[in-house]
């Protein structure tokens, strides 16, 4: 290829002829794959392109498929993917922290940058002392969700098939797209929040949900004969009980919203990638992969951030409503 002696006229790090060649290749690939995909065949008719260019129509399934059983315990492809993520995270962390130095190398600096950022997030939301305590769980949620999403973008996920008793199934499936994973995380988050609240505030934490003090006081007043103030007390107490019920309901709803936000986003992303790859098999899905990287990050941040906020709210001692 003719190279410019001084590569100053180039663009994007290539000389002009190389750039033109690259763009041409890109265009040809896009055009060929467009013609081979279902969009092209509908518009142009079958123009005799070989079969292996087109991709079979995706059939997304909501439940994850069981790959094998251990002692009768079903192991789905999403569980295997979660194991992959766990292995990756643990091995990577171990490799980095095994020989930590005061003055970090590149890998350590990147690792520290991520975790330090999460740590600062925790301390800025929950305060220095609480943030330090919440950091491990919040960071684990972030890392697990984020790396489940990112590793799910690697080739091999959704493309390796294995034979089982129930037919051919995918070996790996991004763990977040199996609803059990988001639900498990949401339950962990819920238990963590409630447990921390009870441990920090004591049994008084429960008064948030069952606040009958005012009601009982009103009842007492009625028995003593102060009908008017007693009835007012009962009314106010009734409102307290009702808000307690709402509070309780809100906490339960959090599980559902956390679960389905993550599950929905991840599943939608997965289906989007499948569909894009089905419509135009080559190159066209690259921008969508970039999009999915961003979405994975955002979902991880949302899940971890919401957990952090919930737990921060839970440990704030609330004022006693009754007088």
């Amino acid at each position: 290829m003719p190279e410019e002696p001084k590569n100053k006229k180039g663009c994007l790090g290539c000389s002009i002829p190389v750039l033109i060649g690259l763009i041409g290749t890109f265009l040809i690939l896009i055009l060929v794959s467009f013609a081979a995909g279902p969009l092209g065949t509908n518009l142009l008719g079958d123009i005799g392109l070989p079969d292996w260019l087109s991709i079979p129509q995706p059939h997304p399934e909501l439940p994850a498929e069981v790959v094998f059983h251990i002692f009768g315990f079903p192991i789905t492809n999403s569980i295997i993917a979660a194991w992959v993520t766990i292995t990756f995270l643990v091995v990577f962390s171990y490799a980095v922290t095994r020989r930590m130095k005061i003055i970090p190398g590149r890998l350590q600096a990147a690792f520290e940058f991520l975790l330090d950022w999460l740590y600062n997030l925790c301390t800025s939301v929950a305060g220095e002392e609480n943030g330090r305590k919440f950091f491990p769980i919040v960071a684990t949620i972030f890392l697990f969700v984020g790396f489940n999403a990112w590793l799910g973008l690697l080739p091999g996920f959704g493309s390796i098939l294995v034979h089982t008793a129930e037919g051919e199934v995918h070996l790996l499936r991004p763990a977040n797209t199996d609803i059990n994973m988001p639900l498990a995380l949401a339950l962990v988050s819920f238990v963590f929040v409630e447990f921390t609240g009870i441990r920090r505030i004591g049994i008084g934490y429960m008064k948030k949900f069952v606040n009958t003090i005012e009601f009982r006081r009103g009842l007492k007043q009625v028995f003593k004969g102060n009908i008017k103030s007693g009835l007012l007390g009962i009314f106010a107490g009734g409102i307290n009980i009702f808000t307690g019920f709402l509070e309780f309901f809100t906490e339960l709803i959090r599980i559902v919203s956390l679960t389905f936000r993550l599950f929905g986003n991840m599943t939608a992303g997965e289906i989007l990638l499948l569909v894009v790859a089905f419509l135009i098999p080559w190159l066209f899905s690259i921008p969508f992969y970039g999009l999915e990287l961003l979405i994975g990050f955002i979902q991880a941040l949302i899940f971890a951030g919401l957990t952090l906020i919930f737990v921060t709210v839970a440990v704030i001692p609330h004022e006693e409503g009754a007088h």
């Binding site: 766990i86 962390s93 171990y94 059990n180 994973m181 498990a184 339950l187 962990v188």
Partner: peptide, 21 residues
Amino acid sequence: ILLAQVINFVILFGLLYFVAY
């Protein structure tokens, strides 16, 4: 599977606690 994923998370948490945090 739900239980398995919860356990996965707990394992990850435990391991990361010692190798990372």
